[in-house]
Amino acid sequence: MNSPLNALLVVVLALNLFALGTSRLVTVIKIVSLQGVLLGLMPLMIEEHVEWESLLAMGGTILLKGAVIPWMMMRAIREVEIRREMEPLIGFLPSMLLGALATGLALLFSKSLPLASEHTAPLLVPASLATIFVGFILLTTRAKAITQVMGYLVLENGIYIFGLLLLGVIPLMVELGVLLDLFVAIFIICIMVNHINQAFSSLDTRRLSELKE
């Protein structure tokens, strides 16, 4: 058993539900950035001796997910002057319940997964699956471009949690490459958000409906 890690994972799961339940965009951004910082700390609790390489990857994760991305997103919403997510496809409470249900199912489901013996104890696999699912809910049921991006980040966080099982397998270069890609992705998205707002006077992606059969 690795109790500090499990405790952190429980906090991550709670943050998922919190992100589903709130309508304030600033709160969602803060939640996702806190989640990013917690994820960045996790390798410390898994590895016995931390090497400089993993310290570098951890530092990069915390800096990017905890500071740089939230800063860029905050700037983006300040420029477009949007505060709240309105009229989601599924309401806030129902989506929170759906998220809780998904978390429960992930816990049950991962019991039946064949896991390597050293990994059966921690919550890593169910937490990863649940977080990925919550990311999907945010991505598909919210109308505002910013919230969809936060959904993508939550999805990415879920995948990161699974990646913790493979600590030391994924080389530093690849980890940094993934982070760099994420950074550029968010950078491009922020530019796009601005242009969407200018062209459509709104960040409601349901207005992006000119192209269809």
């Binding site: 991505l139 471009a145 969809q148 993508y152 999805l155 990415e156 995948i159 992705a185 491009i188 998205i189 796009m192 242009h195 969407i196 062209a199 459509f200 992606t205 992006l208 409906s209 000119e210 192209l211």
Partner: peptide, 20 residues
């Protein structure tokens, strides 16, 4: 144009989820 904004947005979002 507005069309290319919409196309790029869909390209990015669907592409990112796929690659994730």
């Amino acid at each position: 144009t507005t069309r290319s904004i919409e196309a790029t947005w869909k390209y990015l979002l669907i592409g990112f989820v796929g690659i994730a």
